[in-house]
Amino acid sequence: MPTGSVSWAAKVAAVVRKELVSEFRTRYAINAIVMFALVTLTVVSFAVGLLSPSSEMMAALFWIILFFAAMSGLAQTFIKEEESGTALVLKLSSDGSVIFFGKLLFNLLLLIVLAVLIVPLFIIFLKIIPANWAVFLTGLVLGIVGLAGATTIVAAIVSKATVKGALFTVLSFPVLLPLLVAVIEITTVGFSGGGFGEISAPLQLLVAYDVVMTTLSVMLFDFVWRL
């Protein structure tokens, strides 16, 4: 009956497409992420008020908003599958690497949407413009990749637990701590106007983190997902 076979990339694309179509129709994750980001951003802007926080403080606030907004939505990709009973069908229908990369790319897309929303609003509400956009965006892109890589595998682990939502943030934080330290340092330099020379150490850490975390996630995913 089936008329042909499809490539690995096409299988991954099918997972991404399914996630996007489902998300577009249900707005399950995007609503949580956007609402959390907007509320947190508003609260932070009121809290900071007329103060003039340092670049370090601004960078930390920026990543706190991004981190918790991401936590509110990224876990849904796997929790939804387990809770609705579709996980078993998916496990029987495809191999782990296809599911992992499909979910990873979808989480990456969600984080890109989140960043596109948060960055201009952060600049408007907190009245700070990165003095070095290249450094700022480098940190942002690498940070988002690391965040997606780490949270995708943590989401898969957490989806098997009973207390899913709370556990996701608690379990993600220690895993993401090296990433957060590095991106906050890079973002600080981006806000203050320093050059790439000042971020070589955190940049190396961030690149290494992204590579190691994604590789480990791919290797571990089958064990986590299958059983």
């Binding site: 042909g4 299988k11 609705s84 579709t86």
Partner: peptide, 25 residues
């Protein structure tokens, strides 16, 4: 206890499950 995707149509479900399984239908 197996479930299909409620947010997708029946046709989309079948196309998706076949495709991730490496089959073109």
């Amino acid at each position: 206890y197996l479930a299909l995707y409620g947010a997708l149509t029946a046709g989309e479900n079948l196309h998706f499950l076949a495709r991730v399984d490496g089959r073109k239908v």
